[in-house]
Simulated assay, not measured.
Amino acid sequence: MIPSDENEWKKQLDPESYHVLRQKGTERPFSGQYYLNKDTGIYECKACGNEIFHSSAKYDSGCGWPSFTEPVSADAIRVEMDYSHGMVREEILCAKCDSHLGHRFPDGPKDRGGIRYCINSVALDFKKEH
């Protein structure tokens, strides 16, 4: 069940995940547990379990965060404009619980659509396929 207020979110999430998912923070680059993950499976929103990315869409962009070329489906995420920190970016939010996942940029692999979904590891859980 998705929490109805921020106090419930704080009880459900560890402090770093809460900061990223609910307060639109960012983890340090090259520090996340999924940055170098090469296992096959599904990446889910850590806040609500919504399936967000399949490992087949993951690639090493060199940016320091897990990068993907596309979500599992168009309705898995929402995109909003983010004008914070003096930048203009496309923010990626979980479509189910509105938690902040990361940002989308137009510098992904050209042969895979040219989009890079730059996502915080602490915003994700990973379900390995067997």
Rank of each mutant, 00 (worst) to 15 (best):
K127R: 13
L124N: 04
H100G: 09
K127P: 10
G108K: 01
G113H: 10
V122M: 01
D125F: 14
K110C: 13
G113K: 02
I119D: 01
I119S: 05
P109G: 06
P109F: 12
D111M: 11
P109N: 02
V122A: 04
P106E: 07
C118L: 06
G113T: 11
D107H: 08
N120H: 02
D111Q: 10
F126N: 00
G108W: 13
I115W: 14
C118K: 02
A123F: 13
G113Y: 13
D125M: 09
C118S: 09
D125S: 14
D98E: 11
H100D: 03
I119Q: 00
H100A: 07
G114M: 09
D125G: 14
L101A: 04
H103K: 00
S121I: 05
G114F: 11
R112L: 15
C118N: 06
G108E: 03
L101Q: 00
V122Y: 03
S121L: 08
D111F: 15
I119V: 08
Y117V: 06
D107K: 04
V122K: 00
N120P: 07
H103M: 08
I115E: 09
S121E: 05
F105L: 08
S99M: 01
L101P: 04
P109S: 05
P106N: 02
L101G: 05
S121C: 07
G102K: 00
L124S: 03
H100I: 10
V122L: 03
R104V: 15
G114Y: 14
R112H: 12
L101C: 07
H100S: 07
F105T: 05
N120M: 03
K127Q: 11
R112V: 12
V122I: 07
I115C: 03
D125E: 12
S99A: 15
G108R: 00
H100V: 09
D107F: 14
N120T: 00
D111L: 13
Y117F: 15
D98T: 12
P106M: 07
R104I: 13
G113D: 03
H100E: 02
H100T: 06
N120W: 06
G114A: 11
G114T: 10
R104H: 05
R112S: 13
S99W: 02
H100C: 10
G114R: 04
A123Y: 07
D111P: 12
P106I: 10
R112I: 13
F105D: 04
G113W: 12
I119W: 03
A123D: 03
S99I: 07
I119M: 01
F126L: 02
K127E: 08
H103L: 07
A123I: 05
F126C: 03
A123P: 09
C118G: 13
S121V: 08
G114L: 11
L124V: 06
G114K: 04
F105Q: 01
K127S: 13
R104A: 15
D125K: 13
G114I: 14
F105N: 04
R116E: 04
D107R: 01
S99F: 07
G114P: 09
K127V: 15
R104K: 12
D98C: 14
D107N: 09
L124M: 08
D107S: 08
I119R: 00
D98M: 05
S99V: 04
Y117W: 12
D107Q: 02
G102H: 02
K110M: 13
I115K: 00
R104Y: 10
L124G: 05
R112P: 09
S99Y: 04
